[in-house]
């Protein structure tokens, strides 16, 4: 795509093959924010469709971080892929470019454990806050690790604060 090549002039990137025909570019972690900013400002990719990751466990580098961008004017898409190792799974946040990416980065952190630097509110989105695991990692067991942890904690509190006058039945 000529527009993208012009926008990314001077950046290091490699073209990747995709089966769905969307042009994809692999960039290094250091260049990620610069590439995304250029794509937004110079190539009219004003919207981010998704921020997600793929776990290639057990090969290393383990994670592939995907940003898919959409241009409303040209009606085309582009995908930016960044490879991250397990030990150092962090990347620059793109919330300053697209505020809507905040939730997607939070979900990505929740499910894969990838930290986004510059994200102001990087908390878990779906799993309980104190849950120590990342469910979409390939080495997470399918049936979960202690899925009832939050409920058990709540149940203990409930028994402690049990008020018979508010419960049905007991007098």
């Amino acid at each position: 795509m000529e527009r993208v090549r012009t926008a990314l002039e001077g950046c290091r990137f490699e073209q990747r093959s995709t089966s769905d025909g969307i042009p994809a570019f692999g960039v290094s972690r250091e260049d990620l924010h610069e590439v995304l900013q250029r794509l937004r400002d110079r190539a009219d990719f004003v919207a981010v469709t998704f921020v997600t990751a793929v776990d290639r466990y057990p090969s290393e580098p383990r994670f592939e971080l995907h940003h898919q961008l959409f241009s409303l004017i040209h009606e085309d898409r582009v995908r930016v892929t960044t490879e991250l190792s397990e030990k150092d799974a962090k990347a620059a946040s793109c919330v300053d470019l697209w505020p809507g990416a905040a939730f997607m980065e939070r979900e990505c952190y929740d499910m894969f454990g990838i930290r986004f630097e510059g994200h102001e509110n990087l908390r878990r989105l779906l799993m309980p806050e104190e849950y120590g695991h990342h469910p979409l990692r390939k080495d997470f067991p399918h049936a979960g690790i202690e899925p009832d942890r939050l409920y058990r904690k709540w149940d203990r509190e409930r028994r402690k604060n049990w008020d018979p006058s508010r419960a049905g039945g007991a007098k």
Binding site: P58, D139, P141
Partner: peptide, 27 residues
């Protein structure tokens, strides 16, 4: 529930791997 924290299915890539995640502490 008890089984889920211990058992690994035969398709689990964790089987035989060295860096399996530590099961969370019982509370």
């Amino acid at each position: 529930v008890k089984r889920s924290s211990l058992d690994l299915s035969p398709h689990d890539p964790r089987t035989g791997s060295k860096n399996a995640p530590e099961p969370a502490k019982q509370d």
